[in-house]
Design a protein around this nucleic acid. Structure first.
Lengths: 152, 152
DNA sequence: TAAGATATGTTATATTATATCATTTAAATT
DNA sequence: AATTTAAATGATATAATATAACATATCTTA
């Protein structure tokens, strides 16, 4: 399990990051975008687009898929959330703006996701790509298994 | 682009691998499974399930999604194909049975996919997981970018 | 041959995601 | 402030991907 004393703090930090990044880039951190970011950050587990849609529906009127996907796309574009391809789901970015590449430890038992970024791994990937004369544009690395708590 | 002199050779090798692996494991390499494997191997580009379905339809009667997905699941289970999570697509495995972990260089221009496996990278991932007390069950690593030909 | 297991057929539906066009809101310009 | 423009959202429809559930057939082996 992710060790966060007060999860409210995770959420408020994420929102603050959202505000900062949008300010820096002159983008609008609209109500919908903010709300979707909050919902993604409800937990450290991957959030599915249609689950977000349902939660949104309980507060706002009758949102439709494009509403959620647009907000998620915006958040993805600006590094505030990540998409987990192996799960078709989204997690909040733990430290937006700070890294180029990161990867994910996804616990298949408690479902919690840990975001990691090591230079080592990034380098190893770079070397390997180079050996194949391949120019890397983006990397998707997802590790499924058991987290510390769940494998203990 | 993948350098294969005669692509027929890739296909026939893949089918031979299918036969061998099924023999070893006492599994049935049925007509559908064989056909789907051939279709996945039509090229070195990722094959989409519904494209396979269409091609299948031109030969057989009126196949339906479960037919294709069952065959793909079987081939996945037995290491004959891989799923590319970032594309919702499938590629043939270049050397079934020979590796535990592999990763993919996916060219976003010509769409061709190169399957790689380096111990180095596998080790780096292992180390990183260990640092997080994480027990790895499976790894999905997909690198999007430009292959040699396309970036030249 | 009968029983059990595996594979396939069939229908329906669940899940994930996007295209398109209309409308509204915000920002920039005059 | 009014006008223009761009960005965001609303709304409807549909595309793309995948699985559930149950019936039937085929293959194994007791």
């Amino acid at each position: 399990m992710i060790h966060c004393e007060k999860h409210n703090h995770c959420i408020s930090t994420a929102i603050k990051h959202g505000e900062e990044i949008c300010n820096e880039k002159g983008l609008k951190f609209t109500a919908i975008r903010r709300k979707v970011l909050e919902l993604v950050w409800e937990s450290h587990k991957p959030a599915k687009a249609y689950d977000i849609l349902e939660k949104l529906a309980k507060e706002d009127g009758a949102p439709v898929p494009p509403t959620v996907y647009r907000a998620l796309d915006f958040l993805l574009q600006n590094g505030l959330v990540h998409r987990l391809n192996s799960l078709n789901a989204f997690v909040g970015c733990s430290h937006p703006g700070l890294h180029k590449q990161c990867y994910f430890l996804i616990c298949t038992h408690c479902e919690e996701v840990t975001e990691c970024c090591t230079n080592q791994l990034g380098k190893a990937i770079g070397v390997s790509a180079k050996e194949n004369s391949f120019t890397t544009e983006s990397v998707s690395l997802e590790i499924l298994g058991s987290c510390k708590t769940c494998s203990a």
